[in-house]
Design a protein around this nucleic acid. Structure first.
Lengths: 222, 222
DNA sequence: AGATGTCTTGCACACTGTTCAAGTCATGGT
DNA sequence: ACCATGACTTGAACAGTGTGCAAGACATCT
């Protein structure tokens, strides 16, 4: 929030950065659909046309918002002693970051600009992959696999808030299943909310170990 | 497409099923954003109000569309001799199905009703998990992990079409990276488009093997 | 013939992104 | 001092979206 309401048709003293910053706050608080040209204009005490003058179309505004958040994001430190631990740490940084700024991440995902938001973290992850012996096309495939996995678990982690219409939630639909091939205990288990954090960790480890050289990760315990 | 243009204010002979069917065709051809009350009305040679009379709000229309596709979907057969192969086959059925009807799947994903679309396939997958010895909460976690993984790779498989603004595509952004910790060959590899199918297969196997009892899947080759 | 319930229409409202001509202001050159 | 240029801002408008209301047309039953 930069300026308050204004009456006369005078100068608002706005700069492009102020508009983008206000838009960023709007998205962080109210989600992607809260970013409306008119709402943004109202928050700045200004008319929509002013926004067009400063930053242009909504698409440009959106990528400006993403770019701004990307710049002000602290690059989380990678921890761990073994190469495998460091890879997992770097990957988890992307996950944690996306969760912390879920609204902007969702916005970036909608316009296909997630990389713009997370490039430094992706670079850090690839660096750790290379340190672990994964290079070239293999490092690219490993990165992409981890990113897609993160994307999937993200939408899994978002859903609970969205509160999709009660009768078609996952658990509700499964509670109607009566199949002789499926144990009642399993159907019952479907009603419980997922522990996304734990499931993500398991999946991440599984995928990372797929790409790490066999020597880098422990075989099944003796 | 059911009826053509009409002029007088007479009876169109529409039924709820006709409206939903036309909406389904609209989505399958033009994507989620092609499903507009006015466009649907025009396709039926009718006014928007008529749609409201037959099926109600847009949300109800959307879940009706999803439900209709779900009913007319053939339940793909599960193949494979070993329990592990059958689990992978059942999981791949969900993936293939989602790709074949990507527009409706995307629509379902937006409103959080993917399970409504894929419930029979999910049930088949869980049945195979149980046949492989994974039951109760473990089967639930396995299912959810596979579903989230599929969701992530789906948006990875969709992106290429969307044609996000050229300068912020994945490869374009990575081509600007100059980091001493990253080999040039790796940066170069990022420019190539992903082989989503292969990456998905690897990730799926990794996740499935995480949940299957150790005896069910082969250890690393000797 | 008249009434009832099933459909269908036209019009309207609030909201979205976007554009255009016109206005106000500060700062420059003459 | 004047006024011209460019930086900013405004009001009104257009097309498109989902949605609701009052009223009309039709088939069928009484």
């Amino acid at each position: 929030m930069v300026a308050a309401t204004r009456t006369s048709t005078a100068r608002a003293g706005l700069e492009r950065d102020d508009v983008v910053q206000a838009a960023l706050e709007l998205v962080e608080e109210g989600g992607a659909e809260a970013l409306t040209m008119r709402k943004l204009a109202a928050a700045l005490g200004v008319t929509t046309t002013t926004i067009y003058w400063h930053v242009g179309h909504r698409d440009e505004l959106v990528i400006a918002v993403i770019d701004r958040l990307a710049r002000q994001l602290a690059q989380a430190p990678v921890v761990g002693r073994t190469p495998r631990d460091r890879v997992l740490s770097a990957a988890r940084n992307i996950w944690t970051n996306a969760l912390a700024h879920r609204n902007v991440t969702a916005l970036a995902s909608q316009v296909g600009a997630t990389t713009l938001l997370e490039l430094p973290l992706e670079v850090a992850l690839v660096a750790e992959f290379e340190a672990a012996g994964v290079r070239g096309p293999a490092a690219r495939d490993a990165l992409r696999s981890v990113l897609m996995c993160i994307a999937g678990f993200l939408i899994g982690a978002w859903r609970p808030d969205d509160a999709s219409p009660a009768p078609l939630r996952h658990g509700a639909l499964w509670s109607t299943v009566e199949d002789p091939a499926i144990a009642p205990a399993t159907v019952e288990a479907m009603a419980e909310p997922p522990d996304v954090e734990r499931l993500f960790t398991l999946a991440l480890v599984a995928i990372v170990d797929t790409y790490l050289p066999a020597a880098a990760h422990p075989e099944t315990a003796p």
